[in-house]
Nucleic acid binder design. Structure first.
Lengths: 130, 130
DNA sequence: TTACACGTTAAAGTGAACTCTAAGTCAAGC
DNA sequence: GCTTGACTTAGAGTTCACTTTAACGTGTAA
């Protein structure tokens, strides 16, 4: 079991942010008798999953939806399909981001190459604006 | 020459945002006698360049730095190297974003595959938390 | 036992990037 | 001449995701 400062170090995330994620309903650490948070491997894995989604700009609200579906799932009420749909939707936005990034990476690479070819002339700058 | 509503349509960006970018020093459209903004192809190209950088999360402040260097460049004071350095720095962040996105894309794909294999069982959910 | 590191909370504050409001000007069409 | 719609401005408001503050509790080493 880890303290908040330990998983803070392990995930390179401030304790502040970890508490904030808990307040937003993304994490559910257990507590000691006097209310100190304790994190097990499962919670650590979950936090890493959340951080992955955040790094790809999934809004906290959407992550919470996923968590809520997870928690509300039972034999009578299966939420697998809903979760699958959320993941597939996010997969689409991740792929769109990848497209955009690849194109911009190419643009920057081209521009850098142009700058290098022309250096040190500025008058013939490849950008030609404003 | 385009009006603000025309380049708004052409770039899928609200006129509000385009004026905001101008206020932030990223665009310099000319004006008609009574102060109405007019955009030429160069300004349109420039806006598209700005939108590319924004789509890859370059902060407006950094874009402005690039613009400022561009505008302050002259025969006596060459800013090519500084601009090159800014672009190279952003190239690094774009590559880091690409890395992160690719990894998360893989993770989501794996998770979706796992959900599909196990469907409709929830008890053996691949996430196993919280 | 006192110091100090580390934990707790609710709530207010921050910064970035828009987004909207209010009050106004202006040109074209009926 | 009047209405409509597109433009103008400064400045206030919004949203998101933290981040800080203030005030306090707890455990352990010197």
């Amino acid at each position: 079991m880890y303290t908040i400062s330990e998983i803070s170090r392990l995930t390179q995330t401030t304790a502040h942010t970890i508490r904030y994620y808990e307040k937003e309903g993304l994490l559910f650490p257990s507590r000691t008798a006097n209310g100190v948070r304790r994190y097990d491997e499962t919670q650590l894995t979950w936090l890493r999953f959340v951080l992955r989604l955040r790094a790809t700009h999934m809004p906290i609200e959407q992550i919470r939806q996923y968590v809520d579906l997870f928690l509300s799932s039972s034999d009578e009420h299966d939420t697998t399909n809903d979760r699958l749909r959320l993941l597939e939707a996010h997969q689409q936005t991740v792929r769109a981001q990848l497209q955009e990034l690849k194109q911009t990476e190419q643009m920057i690479t081209d521009k850098i190459a142009a700058y290098r070819r022309l250096h040190p002339s500025v008058s013939t700058d490849p950008v030609r604006s404003p």
